[in-house]
Design a protein around this nucleic acid. Structure first.
Lengths: 237, 237
DNA sequence: TTTTCTTTTGTACAGATGTACAAATTATCA
DNA sequence: TGATAATTTGTACATCTGTACAAAAGAAAA
């Protein structure tokens, strides 16, 4: 091929790394070229434009990540125990976002962080992609959760899925904050722990009663009906 | 004073609006001047530099927002019922982020959105501010939550506060997603509902058992110790 | 009024930016 | 090998960037 058979990859990787930490506009093509050990002109040769480069990064990751998610989701739906199944569903959503099964350098975490940053910047190029590609997957998850928590209105599940995604994003964007606030007790960059903490917190939040004053229902079967604690956590919307 | 006695304010407001939607680097001083109906030179006259402008926005909001938070926190700590108190504490953290009590245009939501965007971009100028100003307030909240949930290790509460902040940020950054995914059932821009949903979900997630396999404990006193059910890690409290 | 201070304007500049493109280099294949 | 295609390089260009600064305009005080 050429001198560096992975020049295209190197540029993609460098761009991914820089975009995901500094944002899109703060990174110049020259920055990317420098980081990748390439010539600036080489970037436009391979990807036509800066937008094209960003687009290619998305094309590269979206497929594998959502494929993995759906695989895990299918497996999760087969879990018998209602409680375990809900947890497995949430885990199927969270896990690939932190570490993709594909061998792309950096794994899924870096790409998820990139998505978080692009989302915050309101990047127009990726706006469409998100809605078109990710909404399908998200809907599949919401439906799966609906099956475990049939007493909750879909709208409430959407809100909670929004909180989950936000939590996930921010954990990847600003892990130092966890380390700092915990005074060294926790390591915000520890992805394994982040996943466990996020899954456990999310499962609990999904099981919360709806805000419209209904009683808390136990996940589904298995546990005898227990009333919501007195003092009521629900408030008018 | 001058032709437009609020020119300084107009510039601040325009900058806040543009930064919070497009990010820092995507917005030029000329963009801000245009939006504010001012001359580009006037921006550097009032704020010295683009960084200075961003800094001034933070100075403007940090004080009032955290003051309000502490006020509400103090009131929340006086709530008798344990469950209600926890909810009040969470609400005291969330509410000022969505709508500041100060009369600054746009309220707290726009500034919180700005913080989210700057955080995602890894903006160096505001990095220090966040750590110095906001960590104090956050610590006060974590301590208050610790009082309601004394069985949970601090580290777990830090993780969950991270998830809360992420959820909060993302709700402001991308409200359209809620509207879209709920197929019109919910309005992601409805701040009142966002607050209620976020508070209720967060209270539940805070009450989740710790991930280290310990028994789920009822919120605090009030309920006798209950062992964690076999087979799974997480359970609603 | 005149004087003094504050604010706004217009212009200028050095540097960075995205991108185009021809020339040079390297790989592929006959 | 030589011929052809693919890649890399270097340079150039128009535009935008943050900022500086002198001149103009306006307000405040004498």
């Amino acid at each position: 091929m050429t001198r560096n058979p992975n020049m295209r990859e190197a540029i993609l990787s460098a761009a991914e790394s820089l975009f995901s930490t500094r944002g899109f506009n703060a990174v110049s093509i020259r920055d990317i070229a420098l980081e990748a050990g390439a010539n600036p002109g080489s970037v436009t040769y391979h990807f036509k434009s800066k937008d094209g480069l960003l687009l290619e990064i998305y094309k590269r990751h979206c497929g594998p990540m959502n494929k993995r998610r759906i695989e895990l989701l299918v497996a999760a739906r087969r879990v018998r125990d209602v409680q375990d199944r809900l947890e497995a569903v949430v885990r199927a959503y969270v896990q690939p976002a932190f570490s993709s099964s594909s061998d792309l350098a950096g794994g899924g975490a870096r790409f998820t962080r990139l998505r978080a940053v692009m989302s915050a910047e309101g990047n127009a190029v990726v706006g469409r992609i998100i809605a078109e590609i990710f909404d399908d997957t998200t809907n599949a998850f919401i439906e799966a959760i609906e099956q475990s928590l049939p007493h909750l209105p879909r709208k409430t599940l959407v809100w909670r899925s929004q909180f989950l995604l936000g939590a996930l994003y921010y954990t990847l964007v600003n892990p130092e904050r966890v380390t700092r606030l915990s005074r060294g007790e926790a390591d915000g960059a520890d992805m394994a722990e982040a996943i466990e903490q996020l899954v456990s917190a999310t499962v609990a939040s999904l099981q919360a009663p709806d805000i419209n004053g209904q009683a808390a229902a136990e996940p589904a079967a298995k546990a005898g009906a227990r009333k919501a604690p007195a003092g009521s956590r629900s408030r008018p919307a």
